[in-house]
């Protein structure tokens, strides 16, 4: 069946007409043609029926899909924007000082005091316990009961003290006893302190 020239003009416009995609002027022209052309009216009705079927089919297909976690799944596939570390620190600090100014100032003050106290403790160089005296001092020297020695105490200006035990008995030289080194004592020099008063008799030394 041969199409009339008017139908040939309007057939391409029927689908956009059914879908509502024509301008108002084109729509009026197409409606005027449809009112006069029985074939094109039938074609437009077919297109509407076909569109309805497709829509219905899509609706059925869409109903079968579970969209419950759709938003979460989409968001999970998105890569979140992560600013650089310095930028994040800057923002964090500015927000902390903006919204928690009092807490931050008190925290910084506490930290400064703590640093001062810890620094002071670390650099403290006091006298160790027990060393309050500048120089060593000998209080007393005793010997066990029955010991045949007498202590001789010699002190120096530097606080040194020499405790030397000398025989309190007359020297007895045993036959066969090994000789012992004796310290060389300057005959002309005199030793200060108790050495002068109770000069060691040498004993076995």
């Amino acid at each position: 069946m041969a199409l009339s020239p008017a139908c040939q003009t309007f057939i391409p416009m029927l689908s956009p007409f059914v879908d509502g995609e024509l301008t108002p002027a084109e729509r009026v022209t197409v409606e005027r043609h449809l009112s006069a052309c029985h074939d094109c009216t039938g074609r437009a009705a077919d297109l509407r029926a076909e569109s309805g079927l497709i829509r219905h089919g899509l609706d059925l297909a869409a109903d079968e899909v579970d969209f419950k976690d759709f938003a979460q799944k989409v968001m999970a596939r998105l890569t979140p924007y992560k600013p650089p570390l310095l930028e994040r620190l800057r923002v964090s600090l500015s927000e902390m000082f903006l919204y928690q100014r009092t807490a931050m100032v008190s925290s910084l003050a506490t930290a400064a005091v703590m640093l001062f106290v810890v620094g002071l403790a670390l650099t403290w160089k006091g006298t160790p316990e027990g060393y309050a005296r500048p120089q060593l001092a000998v209080d007393s020297v005793t010997t066990e009961a029955g010991a045949k020695v007498a202590p001789v105490v010699m002190t120096t200006e530097q606080g040194d003290a020499i405790i030397w035990l000398v025989s309190s008995e007359p020297e007895k030289v045993e036959e066969g006893a090994a000789p012992v080194d004796a310290p060389a004592v300057d005959p002309g020099a005199s030793a200060p302190g108790k050495l002068d008063q109770h000069k060691p008799n040498g004993g076995e030394l």
Binding site: G130, L136, V141, I163
Partner: peptide, 11 residues
């Protein structure tokens, strides 16, 4: 012998 002493920073 037994010696009693006071410790000092020197000596």
């Amino acid at each position: 012998a037994s010696t009693e002493l006071q410790l000092g920073r020197e000596g």
